[in-house]
C-alpha cells in the first residue's frame, strides 16, 4: 500500500458538504472503473499503441479502444450492466454513475452500495464512500452523464 497526503476536499470542494468516508488505503492496483465493476485487481483503460493494449492495463475484449462514453458503456455491458434512467436506490439493483467532462469524455465511475451511498476509487488514491454524486462533481470529474444497473448479487 502507498501513502497519500492529498486533501480530497481541496480536489473536490463539494465533498465539504458530503459526509464522505475514506474506506481503503491508496493503491495503484485498480481504478474507479474497475472498482465500479467490482474488481480490485486491474486498472481499466483503453490506452493502446496502434490498437494493441499497453501492458499493465485491462480493457474488456471486443470493446473499442477509445476514451468515449459509448466505449465505456460497452465495457460495463460486459459485466452485466445496462443503461438505466436514474441513480435512485432500487432494491435488487446495483447501479453505477459515469461522470464525463465538458467534452463528454468519461472521467470517473461511482458504484451505489445497497444502503444508497456511493463508493468511488479516486484515481490512484483511496476508496471513499460518499452520500451524493454531486460530491465529486466539479472541474476535474465534470458531471454525471449516465447511469447503468445490474442485478445485485452481493449483500453489501
Amino acid at each position: 500500500m502507498m501513502s497519500s497526503g492529498i486533501d480530497l476536499q481541496t480536489l473536490f470542494p463539494q465533498l465539504q458538504t458530503d459526509d464522505y468516508q475514506i474506506t481503503s488505503a491508496a493503491t495503484r492496483g485498480y481504478n474507479c472503473h474497475a472498482w465500479a465493476a467490482g474488481e480490485d485487481d486491474a486498472w481499466w483503460s483503453p490506452v493502446n499503441r496502434a490498437g494493441l493494449p499497453i501492458g499493465g492495463y485491462y480493457w474488456p475484449r471486443g470493446v473499442p479502444h477509445d476514451e468515449s462514453l459509448p466505449a465505456l458503456v460497452q465495457a460495463f455491458r460486459t459485466c452485466g450492466y445496462a443503461p438505466c434512467d436514474t441513480g435512485e436506490l432500487e432494491v435488487g439493483l446495483e447501479k453505477i454513475a459515469i461522470y464525463t467532462d465538458h467534452a463528454r469524455l468519461p472521467t470517473h465511475t461511482a458504484r451505489q452500495l445497497a444502503n444508497g451511498q456511493w463508493t468511488s476509487k479516486i484515481g490512484e488514491y483511496q476508496d471513499i464512500t460518499h452520500d451524493t454524486l454531486a460530491g465529486l462533481e466539479g472541474q476535474d470529474y465534470g458531471r454525471v452523464a449516465c447511469f447503468m444497473s445490474r442485478a445485485r448479487t452481493d449483500a453489501q
Binding site: 497519500s4 472521467t107 470517473h108 479516486i122 476535474d140
Partner: peptide, 12 residues
Amino acid sequence: ETGHLSSISQRV
C-alpha cells in the same frame, strides 16, 4: 496534478 484521475490518456 493527475493522481486523482483515472484516465491514463489524460494523465499521459
